[in-house]
Design a protein around this nucleic acid. Structure first.
Lengths: 392, 392
DNA sequence: GCCAGTGATAGTAAAATTACCTAACCAATA
DNA sequence: TATTGGTTAGGTAATTTTACTATCACTGGC
């Protein structure tokens, strides 16, 4: 379904053109990696000779991928070196989130990763199909930011559900009309952009990559206002699974050896319903699960916190034993409401791997931020792969 | 601990030398991928011009990596094309397994992946340290096969335990002296070879890659004679975890919500002890867990099989929900003893993902085969990376 | 049934192309 | 005046294109 024809060999071959492509790719990579660059710095990074570095740079300027950004303020002898940057407006990355009952958000970033515009809108998905809603808000947002929608090269969408890339369908989604839609196909037809659809927890997991502590790989236990999920980001990239349904801890039975009729899952035992029930048992009130946790922390209800932390630690032990990740991030609205207090209790219960449990390093909407980060990474990869190397 | 200095940029750059290296690498890759190759076939695979293909081939011959293998039996007009092959004796890959109470096995394969020799030996690890035992048997085996031990470029060792590459230590190992050893360091000093140490279940998982059905990724539930384990091989390579302790399902509590004193783990509930206990309860006898299963299958004890299959399916559901793998392989001595019968029962219990559960496709010692496959893959990678490209 | 002619294929040789590197040079600046 | 940024000129190394030779199966006349 994905690709046709035989796959290209993993080891390329070619002639002088390939060499030029390689060197231009390398230069572009360093340019995207370094904010600003002079010819001399490029020379040092790539090891190319002076005339070659010069030539490669002028090719990048011609193609519009690089732009000049003044000259160095020379404090050494000699002329001032010309400074180059990536052309931030060469192409844009967009991200959208779909949530119930919040509606949708859209954000657009330039090639440098700077957010240019964002907007949110409540949507009644029974009245407006999700794909139309995203399209409308994306067009409006790009207009506000003064961005030509045709320059948006990637669009990543975070949805609450499991996206199956092979069939272009979304499973386990509680948004009306979402499971019947072929979202990627329909949006790709309207927009020119490359569309990717991610699970919301996976998007939040990408956002946690901003934490330099988690560079070696991380697993996120997402304790959301409603649902529960796990994001796995180890070695190279997200683990999404065959049908995009990896990390669905919520569907796992807590006690498979008990063949009772109720058969509680981790969602029942650890998710929002469990928090509400635990709150009632301990006399702690709140409108929703995060509120209950905030109240518990405020009141110093250590019995409640111990009980809940024990459950969280049990889930973490499962993840630690199966995946042995360098870091386990506690994230989501409930975890945020629990704050350092909850984290401390969980660490106490986690015993041997407590030091690996860290709080979320993301401020703000992790799902939206992660989706935009993901779209931006994808954009850079695509620019690197396609914008050059189509020489004679 | 692993590398010093700044990492090289992921996008290389270079001059004509690089180009030649690239093309020779490509040729070598195709040569290793294709058993035999003529210049014309190489031309078609790489897209290189005729004289270049010729030149690259003669370089490979000079370096000793390729050898001639006669000429084609021309059934078309024109001269017979010269046929080339990888020089199978250019370098060798070795594998070893350490098991209690079986002792150690050693196997050696040539660059083409053909097994040249293998041997097994019972070892009293309290008398002979594991690293010395491996070294001795490896030297003896290579002597028997007439292979210069210096040409053994990779050695992969499968051990029952979690290998931590950073500290070069093995945890959770029940072989005397194994946890005190720095096995890689000590063997690397004696042998010139590159040493890798794998968990035994992970080695068996590599062996399952031979099954073309599992090309999209697989997870192995290993029901061994003694222990229980999970091998995860998705997207890119094995998931080993920070301390090599990924896949240790045996240590996971079955029912975290029950805070009883016994606190049974999956090992207790699904491993060899559980099989023995279940056998006693159903009046089925056997010397060890596989024997009990074989007896149950022979007697058609469907009550026993249903009960055990229900437990296996519970573990599989956990793996399916967390990892969503394309295939789940049932392997290990217990699973083999249960055969198609057990598989059928498990599939019935697995409901929605039963069709993804497949039997092991490996005949013989999966751990030893996987370790050798792994060593051979590593050998090919290293040859590709190092043998060429050291030009002027 | 034999043997030269024909055409297709394997491989090599020479010239042209492309991109890189070194070395020399010019200009700007502390 | 020495140093640095940048360009120009000439040379090198790898490729490709074009042209050529050698080999071999097939064919058809003798």
């Amino acid at each position: 379904m994905r690709s046709t024809g035989p796959p290209p060999p993993p080891v390329p071959s070619g002639s002088s053109h390939l060499l030029r492509t390689i060197n231009e790719r390398a230069a572009l990579y360093h340019l995207m990696d370094n904010e600003t660059l002079t010819r001399v710095e490029l020379r040092r990074l790539t090891g190319l000779a002076k005339p070659t570095a010069s030539h490669v740079m002028s090719r990048l300027l011609e193609s519009g991928l690089a732009v000049t950004a003044g000259r160095t303020t020379a404090r050494q002898a000699g002329p001032k070196a010309e400074v180059y940057t990536v052309n931030a407006d060469y192409a844009f990355a967009a991200a959208a989130t779909l949530r119930e009952p919040d509606g949708i958000t859209v954000a657009i970033a330039d090639l440098k990763g700077h957010e240019k515009a964002s907007s949110a809108m409540r949507v009644d998905f029974t009245a407006v199909p999700p794909d139309r809603a995203v399209l409308n808000l994306l067009r409006r947002t790009s207009e506000v930011a003064g961005i030509d929608p045709d320059r948006i090269a990637t669009l990543h969408i975070a949805v609450p559900g499991a996206y199956d890339a092979d069939t272009d369908t979304i499973g386990h989604a509680d948004i009306p009309g979402l499971s019947e839609l072929r979202m990627r196909t329909s949006l790709e037809a309207e927009l020119g952009a490359a569309i990717e659809i991610h699970n919301d927890v996976n998007a939040a997991t990408v956002a946690e990559r901003r934490n330099p502590e988690a560079a070696g790989g991380l697993v996120v236990l997402w304790l959301g206002r409603e649902g529960l999920g796990v994001g796995i980001d180890l070695q190279r990239g997200l683990l999404t699974g065959l049908h995009g349904a990896a990390g669905e801890l919520g569907y796992v039975p807590v006690s498979p050896d008990r063949t009772g009729a109720d058969d509680p899952t981790f969602q029942d035992w650890l998710g929002a319903p469990a928090v509400a029930e635990l709150g009632r048992a301990h006399g702690i009130e709140g409108d929703d699960a995060p509120a209950v946790l905030a109240a518990a922390v405020g009141e110093g209800a250590s019995d409640f916190l111990d009980e809940y932390a024990t459950r969280v630690a049990a889930a973490l032990r499962l993840l630690k034993c199966l995946l042995d990740p360098p870091q386990i991030v506690l994230a989501g609205e409930i975890a945020r409401a629990g704050g350092e207090t909850l984290l401390g209790h969980v660490r106490d219960r986690a015993e041997d791997f407590g030091e690996r449990v860290i709080p979320s390093a993301v401020y703000g909407d992790a799902v939206a931020i992660g989706a935009l980060d993901s779209a931006h990474d994808d954009l850079k990869d695509r620019i690197l792969d396609s914008a050059l190397g189509t020489g004679p």
